[in-house]
Write a protein that binds this DNA or RNA. Structure first.
Lengths: 337, 337
DNA sequence: CAAATTTTGGCAAGCGTTTGCCATGTGACC
DNA sequence: GGTCACATGGCAAACGCTTGCCAAAATTTG
């Protein structure tokens, strides 16, 4: 063994020299196994293993243009809803040999745009979860590279969305069955597509069943948005509230409790997402469950599918939703007067 | 304007040609502003802006060896504790112009090792949150590149840890003040350094105050670990329980409720972390709060500090903890017999 | 057995930057 | 007016890998 082992990490060239073949052969032994004789390949692989060779991703990316990395942007990492999406995406990405670059856009369209810009050259594509960007901006982004959307449908783009039509109908059915003549929808950010979708579904279902639906908001889709929403609800005298998401619903319930209102005796509360915590808050929250990990995983898969070449048409993948009835909803209160 | 705008993204060379300078000048205009005449620089920058030039990160990484990216590995993304760490790390990384690569190790040392291996060449350094690897393995990893640890202290490595000594003392004081003669510690994974640290602190504090402390476990540090832990606790007849973390504590409380035990009337429960949900579960959980976002941010800062050159010595940064007393703890029950 | 075909491996040209080194221009200093 | 130092810009060699193209070898075909 004449050649000294270099102190720096072994390169493909080192392996080639040690194995007595050309660098191209080593490269192909890894990336196009069938392009090289089995015997040669095994020899090369053995040498590579002995030298502890690991390809330099930067060099690979430079030449091939592929980074084996995808960007995942979420509005708020600390919202357990997105934690689920991240987990699912991470799993699917790992399965595809891809690495995840994570960005927290802080519910901010400007920030989102900036992150897409900044990461664009560093990733092979984006999964955008609940993006706050406009359709046009999203389309523009998709023009420069593969994109998959979670809970946002834009014609022509790969989308994974929850089945809000059926879900909102379930919610309204549930409320109607308890005798509520009306409800208020506590809305989230105006830019939220899923928020608009939820409201649309609720309103349609309400009309069909003869309930009256009112929309309040916008409110921050976090615990912190709850108090303001709760106060508006109290002032309105509503008997039932559907909140933009569980964070808001939980924040609202806490404020309601502070103000002496009982859930569900005085007010029924429904959320969206079925996040971690929805089943052990007090009372346990009735909410529309979404398969968040699936959503993340499906989005990555959709992205992977367009990685080699962009496919022509991408049908929106819609995920089932399911109303989880817990203790935060109940019959309409019997208020004399 | 003689040169046609290329359809592909503009490269540094394009900018150089258009500006009538050498590529090296363009490069320096960006990376070493003071190395080039102000007039020239402004001209170059203007051309670059007009051409929409953005440096190719792969090419930069290849030549410079720096990727402007750091890896963040956590045991479980869906644990809100780590969501906080991630958020803080993301913020600090963005502030330093760095991007985060995220990995979920699934509480699995093997997985953790594999991810470090896989990402090593793609990042400038790692933040390892609650790593399950052994000290030696961690040291070995640090030998190949910068590393910062969260809630794990290894001599010679940059560490950010919560102040468990003071924290555990607060817990035991609290329990003692309620008259509990003893308590059990419901332990998490054996590989968890912070778990060992917590137990050590509790035991020491217990001895000092004349309480008896027993350790159960290991249990999974998730909601799912709660039932088994609860049953063990019930069987033991303990009046107070300190859990490895809040997830476990909440899972345990739910099981306790199912079995007809009231918290805190029959059993007091204390957790660690003060995660999202700890304040609105039923009853609200007494727990040791940790500044998770700070922890993430500090770790990234410590990492950034060793990015240009490794510093000689890294004192562990210790973060304050604070006991949040809520409703899950109370006086020792008055059990006749 | 020669010709045609398929495998297999090597050559060399990049991919888009950074950076060490050198050449020039400019002003300062004596 | 000459010497020096410094500011500025260019040259060219990497960085480690991929890939189009070609040649040699092996295999099939007529």
């Amino acid at each position: 063994m004449p050649s000294a082992r270099p102190p720096r990490p072994a390169t493909l060239t080192d392996v080639a020299a040690e194995a007595g073949v050309a660098p191209s052969t080593v490269s192909r032994a890894f990336s196009r196994p069938q392009r090289v004789n089995r015997h040669t390949r095994e020899h090369v692989l053995a040498i590579a293993a002995r030298l502890g060779y690991e390809p330099n991703p930067a060099a690979q990316a430079l030449e091939s243009g592929r980074t084996r990395t995808i960007g995942l942007l979420v509005p708020d990492i600390t919202n357990p809803y997105f934690a689920g999406v991240i987990k699912g995406a991470e799993r699917a990405a790992a399965a595809a040999g891809l690495t995840l670059m994570l960005g927290d856009t802080q519910e901010n369209p400007t920030q989102e745009e900036a992150m897409v810009q900044r990461l664009r050259r560093a990733v092979d594509g984006f999964v955008l979860s609940a993006p706050r960007l406009s359709d046009d901006e999203l389309l523009a982004a998709a023009d420069k590279g593969p994109v998959a959307l979670v809970n946002r449908a834009v014609p022509g783009l790969a989308c994974v969305v929850a089945d809000f039509d059926s879900g909102t109908r379930q919610i309204v059915d549930h409320l109607a069955s308890y005798g509520h003549p009306s409800f208020v929808f506590v809305g989230g950010p105006a830019e939220s597509w899923s928020g608009r979708r939820r409201w649309r579904g609720l309103r349609t279902a309400a009309r069909r069943l003869g309930l009256e639906a009112t929309r309040f908001g916008p409110f921050q889709p976090k615990l912190a948005g709850g108090p303001a929403a709760a106060d508006a609800v109290v002032a309105s005298g509503a008997t039932a509230v559907v909140c933009h998401n569980d964070m808001l619903a939980i924040g609202l319930m806490r404020r309601l409790a502070q103000r002496g209102l009982r859930v569900p005796d005085d007010v029924s509360v429904v959320g969206f997402d079925d996040i971690f915590g929805a089943d052990f808050c007090n009372p346990p929250l009735t909410t529309l469950a979404e398969r968040t990990e699936d959503a993340g995983a499906r989005a990555v898969e959709a992205l992977v599918r367009q990685l080699p070449r962009r496919t022509t048409d991408q049908p929106a993948r819609v995920l089932p939703t399911e109303l989880v009835i817990r203790a935060s909803t109940g019959p309409v209160p019997d208020r004399a007067g």
